[in-house]
C-alpha cells in the first residue's frame, strides 16, 4: 500500500522556485494498475521518482507499507528500493558489458544472494520472459523489445510490490511496445502494483485507474 500526503517537490531554476509537484496526495492499494499521463513538465516523472525513492520530497509524507519513507536514511531507502520496488525505463538502462542473464542477476548480486540460488532464479526468469536463447547475448545484440524484456525481468527478479515504468514503450515500435505492455499487465494480474508513466493515450487508457497531471498537480484521477 502506498500513501502520499501533500507532497511538494520544488526545484530552483535561477531565482525562481518551480513546483514539480505541488501538494500531491495519493492513495494506492495493493494490485492496482495506474497510468499517469500529462504533458511534458507536468511532474509525472518526478512523482514516479518520489514513489521509487530515487528522489525526496521537500514537504509531505510518503508511506510505503506502514513505513514513513521520508524518515529513512539513504542506505535504508536503498534497501527498500532493492526489495519492494522495480524500475522499468524508457532507455532500458542495461549494463552494456554484461549479458542478458547477468543484467537480470544484478539485483540478486547486490542483495548478496548465493550464486547457486541466483542461477535458479535467473533461469526461471529467463524462461518466464522467453529469453532463454538470448541469455548469453549482450544488450547490443538484442532487439529493443528483447532489451525491455530483460529490463522487466531485472525489475521483477526481487519480487517487488511495485513496478514503476517510465515510458516503457517510448523507445519501441508498436508491436514490441504492445508486447511489453502485455507483459507488464500480466505481472499486475499477479498482484504487483503497476504504475505507468506515458504520453501515449492508447497505452494510458488501458489502465484501470488513470491519473492525469498538469503543472505539478493531479488534475484528474479516475
Amino acid at each position: 500500500m502506498i500513501r502520499l500526503d501533500s507532497i511538494e517537490r520544488v526545484f530552483q531554476v535561477g531565482n525562481e522556485n518551480v513546483y514539480a509537484l505541488n501538494n500531491v496526495s495519493l492513495k494506492i492499494s495493493q494490485g492496482e494498475y495506474i497510468s499517469i499521463m500529462g504533458p511534458s513538465g507536468s511532474g509525472k516523472s518526478t512523482l514516479l521518482n518520489i514513489i521509487g525513492l530515487l528522489d525526496r520530497p521537500n514537504k509531505g509524507f510518503y508511506i510505503l507499507d506502514d513505513v514513513n519513507t521520508t524518515d529513512l536514511s539513504d542506505e535504508q531507502q536503498a534497501l527498500v528500493r532493492r526489495h519492494k520496488i522495480g524500475f522499468v525505463f524508457q532507455f532500458f538502462h542495461l549494463v552494456p558489458r554484461l549479458t542478458a542473464s547477468e543484467n537480470i542477476e544484478l539485483p540478486l548480486i547486490l542483495a548478496g544472494m548465493k550464486p547457486e540460488k541466483r542461477k535458479d532464479r535467473v533461469k526461471s526468469a529467463l524462461e518466464d520472459f522467453r529469453l532463454t536463447d538470448r541469455a548469453k547475448h549482450r544488450p547490443d545484440q538484442l532487439s529493443g523489445g528483447q532489451r525491455q524484456r530483460v529490463a522487466i525481468a531485472r525489475a521483477t527478479i526481487m519480487e517487488p510490490q511495485v513496478v514503476l515504468a517510465d515510458e516503457p514503450t517510448g523507445n519501441l515500435d508498436r508491436a514490441s511496445g504492445k508486447e511489453v505492455i502485455e507483459i507488464l499487465e500480466k505481472l499486475n494480474k499477479k498482484g504487483i502494483i503497476l504504475i505507468l508513466v506515458t504520453h501515449d493515450p492508447d497505452i494510458g487508457n488501458r489502465a484501470v485507474r488513470k491519473i492525469s497531471m498538469v503543472d505539478g498537480k493531479i488534475l484528474d484521477d479516475t
Binding site: A78, R81, R82, G86, P107, L110
Partner: peptide, 16 residues
C-alpha cells in the same frame, strides 16, 4: 553515470 544510477535504482547502497 547511467550504470551507477541504474544500480542505485535497483537497490545498491552508497557503500556498495
Amino acid at each position: 553515470t547511467t550504470e551507477i544510477g541504474l544500480i542505485k535504482a535497483i537497490g545498491a547502497t552508497r557503500r556498495q
